[in-house]
Nucleic acid binder design. Structure first.
Length: 152
DNA sequence: GCCAACGTTGGC
DNA sequence: GCCAACGTTGGC
């Protein structure tokens, strides 16, 4: 079992929305590195830190679980979607997404600053300068610390 | 295959 | 709204 951090803008899709919906397909990822993590490395049951980006403040809002393995992202075929990709076909899809299931909401957001302030988390990718990858692997030891910081 | 120009992400 | 860092595109 592996551990991940997945970024979402709460204005677009928040942890509260995930709690309400229970599950969601992680559509709209248009970055190859992030896609490859979903296609090749994620497995059902993997644990996810649900991160609110472009938020005030940004930070980890709760936990989720990978509930279904990667399937073609339907939005790449939808001409009306901002995620439409003219190069993709049903026979040869380009973009894939996994299904994510709600697990827990932190009592309090663990802010980006909180993560920075913790010496033990120094090596987390999300803290690296210029890190904008929206899906990142996380070490178990880091995952456990953040979970504890979130009161779970 | 190089690399300049452009677009996007995301913290501040 | 700004802008640094990064990814992608396209001309050559």
């Amino acid at each position: 079992m592996k551990y991940w951090l997945m970024k979402s803008e709460p204005d677009v899709f928040s942890i509260d929305q995930l709690k309400k919906d229970s599950t969601t397909w992680w559509e709209g990822v248009r970055n190859y590195q992030a896609r490859n993590f979903m296609m090749k490395d994620m497995e059902v049951g993997d644990a996810v830190l649900f991160y609110h980006s472009n938020a005030t403040p940004p930070g980890v809002a709760g936990l989720a679980v990978i509930s279904k393995a990667a399937e073609p992202d339907q939005l790449q075929f939808d001409k009306k979607s901002e995620y439409f990709d003219p190069k993709a076909t049903k026979e040869k899809p380009i973009w894939y997404c996994v299904q994510v299931k709600y697990a827990d909401k932190f009592k309090e957001l663990v802010s980006l600053q909180d993560l920075r302030d913790n010496d033990k988390l120094k090596e987390m990718l999300v803290l690296a300068k210029g890190s904008r990858l929206s899906i990142q692997p996380v070490d178990k030891k880091h995952f456990d610390i953040v979970k504890k910081m979130g009161g779970l």
